[in-house]
Computed example of a mutant assay.
Amino acid sequence: MAYVVTQPCDGCKYTDCVTVCPCDCFREGDRMLYIEPEDCIDCDQCVAECPVEAIFHEDQVPEPWRHYIRLNAEMAKTCPPIFERKPPLSGG
């Protein structure tokens, strides 16, 4: 099981969550962040840091956003790791 970044992150890409992740499982896409499910240790620390409430445990992802579970796994394989906080996208 792992945490999943969902729709509210798309287009804003806040990176507050990255700084508290003890296992460096976040990956940076063009418009949002993703979590590498193989690396996530279910520590829950990122959830409280997300200002747009985009991160859910995969068992609790709202039904309309369930496709983000697969999307995180797929995109995490192609996107580079992110380790430090960056400014959000404009409009985010």
Rank of each mutant, 00 (worst) to 15 (best):
V47L: 11
P80Y: 05
L33S: 02
V61M: 04
N72T: 04
G29F: 03
L33C: 06
M32W: 10
D59K: 14
T78Q: 15
D42F: 09
P37Q: 06
Q45D: 14
I41S: 06
K86F: 07
E49N: 09
R70M: 15
P88S: 09
K86E: 08
Y68I: 02
L71N: 05
C25A: 12
C43A: 04
E53W: 13
R85S: 11
N72R: 02
P80L: 02
L33G: 02
R70D: 15
I82N: 00
F83G: 13
P64W: 05
E74A: 14
R31L: 10
D44R: 12
T78V: 14
I35W: 01
Q45A: 10
R70V: 15
W65A: 05
E84T: 15
R85C: 08
D44V: 15
C46H: 01
Q45E: 14
Y34C: 06
A73N: 03
D39E: 11
L71Y: 13
E38Y: 07
P80T: 03
H67R: 12
P88M: 06
F83M: 13
E74H: 13
P64C: 03
E53A: 12
C50L: 04
Y34R: 04
A48W: 10
I69N: 01
F26T: 02
R66M: 12
E36H: 09
H57T: 05
A76H: 02
H57E: 08
I82P: 00
C40F: 06
R31E: 15
D44L: 11
R85G: 04
V61A: 02
P87Y: 14
N72M: 03
L33M: 10
P81W: 08
P51T: 07
L33F: 07
M32R: 11
L33E: 00
P80C: 04
E28F: 09
H57Q: 08
P51L: 07
M32Y: 10
E58H: 08
P62V: 14
R27K: 12
N72F: 01
D30K: 09
C25F: 03
I41C: 07
P88R: 05
A76V: 06
E49C: 08
F56D: 00
M75Q: 08
I55T: 01
D42K: 11
D42M: 10
A73K: 09
E58Y: 06
E63G: 07
P88L: 06
F26E: 01
F56L: 01
K86L: 12
E53R: 10
E38C: 08
C25K: 02
D42P: 05
R31D: 14
F83K: 15
W65Y: 14
P80H: 04
K86R: 15
T78P: 01
I55D: 00
R70L: 14
R66W: 12
E28N: 09
P80Q: 05
C40E: 02
C50G: 01
L33T: 01
Q45M: 12
D59I: 06
P64V: 06
F83V: 14
R70I: 15
V47E: 06
R27I: 03
P87K: 13
V52P: 01
E74L: 15
I69K: 04
F56H: 04
P87F: 15
D44I: 10
V61L: 07
E58P: 05
H67K: 14
